[in-house]
Nucleic acid binder design. Structure first.
Lengths: 158, 158
DNA sequence: ATTGCAAGTGCAACTATTTGCACAATGACT
DNA sequence: AGTCATTGTGCAAATAGTTGCACTTGCAAT
């Protein structure tokens, strides 16, 4: 039970059960240096205990997401990635280049004005835990780009 | 061939072929009053011509998206929806309530400052054709919410 | 009108993710 | 320690969406 005790407490307090599967999954997300996908988590869980089903991983991730203990981000490369929210002291978001596929972090602070206006003008409390914005990066805009174009390019002519 | 001639021209000029499938799909998106999903398009195409495969729909949608003739939005209800970009004179984006599932439009103008800062500070040209931001709507924040919670709620305790 | 070939399509098999259901395990109460 | 309702899990089947491959077709050149 090395998973951050704060999170374990949150779960218990909300009335959720602390199953070994959940603890393992939390440990793995906690130990992972950066964003991690459901399949990576599944693989690592299975190293310890091979009977855990992938659907348990997804269900646990959805639960943690609902409780806002983790963030979910789709960087556009075919799977969604997860990260502990709690520890993210300096929150960041991602810019994903639709040409080269590269992804760049940007400061949370840039989203604050939008968040404030949405709240003031629309009464809407935006969850901007972790955003991914698609577009064209500096290099690709200058035409220097070229390189690993990912998943997508199924149309011969480009 | 009722599909907006501008779009048909765009396609031809970029060297893409004008197949009956593509024209039918364009017509349907063009005639549709609001966002339409791949399956809805497929159903309508099949009314006219039942041999069109769903993968052709997806491939065509991906092509039109790449050429930025249509926008793609995930409103979080299980399928992605598409809309002609060209005709959208007053562009809008969506606020999706993660509790009641309702979705509200907001003005494109609110995203402009963010777009400008991303370009100036990061050299990144954000594609913000059609955004969906998740969060909590006014009613649900006040606890008035309750109602059709969609896809998601698989954890008994809420 | 005919030809040639690259681009497009249909099909079937695959992807990540979700879900219904029957069984197992947690944790509150005793 | 034992009981029990309820939550959580594994499994298998489903979901939307993608992809490799062989066949077809649009269209430019003839």
């Amino acid at each position: 039970m090395t998973a951050h005790p704060t999170i374990v407490e949150s779960l218990r307090q909300e009335g959720y059960r602390l199953t070994p599967q959940r603890i393992m999954i939390l440990d793995i997300i906690n130990d992972s240096m950066s964003h991690i996908s459901a399949e990576e988590i599944h693989r690592k869980v299975q190293e310890q205990y091979p009977f855990v089903n992938i659907s348990t991983i997804y269900r646990t991730l959805n639960l943690l997401k609902k409780l806002r203990l983790i963030s979910e981000t789709d960087l556009g490369d075919g799977y969604v990635r997860y990260e502990l929210l709690e520890r993210e002291r300096h929150r960041h978001h991602h810019l994903v280049c639709r040409q080269c596929g590269e992804s760049f972090a940007f400061e949370d602070e840039l989203l604050k004005p939008l968040q404030i206006r949405l709240l003031k003008e629309y009464g809407f409390a935006a969850d901007v835990d972790h955003f991914a914005i698609f577009g064209l990066c500096q290099r690709c805009r200058r035409g220097e780009g070229r390189g690993g174009v990912r998943k997508e390019g199924q149309h011969g002519a480009d």
